[in-house]
Design a protein around this nucleic acid. Sequence first.
DNA 1: GTCTATAAAAAGATAGAC
DNA 2: GTCTATCTTTTTATAGAC
Lengths: 195, 195
Amino acid sequence: MARTAGSHSEITGPRVLQAALTLFARHGFAAVSMRQIAAEVGVQAGALYNYTPDKQTLLFDLMRTHMEGLLEAWEAEKSDGDATERLRRFTRFHITYHLERPDEVFISYMELRNLTPENFREIEALRRKYETELEKILRDGLAEGVFNVPDPRVVTMAVIAMVTGVTTWYRTAGRLSVEAVQDIYWQMVQRAVSA
Amino acid sequence: MARTAGSHSEITGPRVLQAALTLFARHGFAAVSMRQIAAEVGVQAGALYNYTPDKQTLLFDLMRTHMEGLLEAWEAEKSDGDATERLRRFTRFHITYHLERPDEVFISYMELRNLTPENFREIEALRRKYETELEKILRDGLAEGVFNVPDPRVVTMAVIAMVTGVTTWYRTAGRLSVEAVQDIYWQMVQRAVSA
DNA sequence: GTCTATAAAAAGATAGAC
DNA sequence: GTCTATCTTTTTATAGAC
């Protein structure tokens, strides 16, 4: 569509973030220019600076929003059952949430290097907070005697790496439903930690 | 040291690759300039083109060399025992090999997007070949009745994601030896797939 | 709020002297 | 084989008209 000058603040703002998200995920932060983002939105490059002070802030906002959304969603989802039930819920939640947001997940893992040191620390703190949620479940299950994990911190990292890995190969058009994938991973997680 | 013009072909060539490896791993392919690589080597930017036709080839050569080295090392390491022993060996090999080459592993996972389509296909074929080594072990163990995996392909991806994940958190100066890490991961892998 | 135009810096790659 | 110099393009970001 042919575009002319005008005010579209409420529409353009989210579209800038969406375009940045898609392009950063596909080509990488450093490989994407502000002109490419502008072209995707349908404005000129200069207009982007009405919505972000610079390119770095665009990346940081995307990552912070993702991590905060993840933590909020988990807070809403987690329950008070026994450790096994909590672990089952974490595993299934993690898979669903990540499969539904492939671009956000991708940049949040791949573009950490491109954050300024201050921004990096803030994102890392959020990630650490999320990891600690799983670690607490493992430690509680250990105390209850239902889990047998030699090193809760290491097992936390191993489980998160495993379940996050679905995002690298899962395709919606493939042969498996999300539920089938959740079942397979839950079986592995459960066996890996059970006493 | 002050440098002057001269011939150093056999020395400079490997140094260019080493500098590119280190810088790509630290900052990302797209974020590193040929001038930065040259500065790290201690030559001028123009001199790099005696060793590579372009920046893309530099990345591709690093990734191909890594993947070929991984496959060769596994060929030398793998054994003919039963499926459990082969899986144990794969797990321990994978962890050691990857922990010894953090930079190579990092770019081989993170910079796939920055390969040209032809180069990408070649690297993907090598990666797929490596994954198939694990998948064969799982299928053999399934046939032998010693493993219980609902979906060998999915379990392959899950196990590889889990063990590769050590590279994101392991630090040589940390509290755990490589052997201790291997033990923890092997216990988890074994339990996750055992009948 | 968006445009056009541009500043200022940096990029990949090449030419030719030594 | 390396240097200096340069071509050409592209980059982030800003200024000012509308």
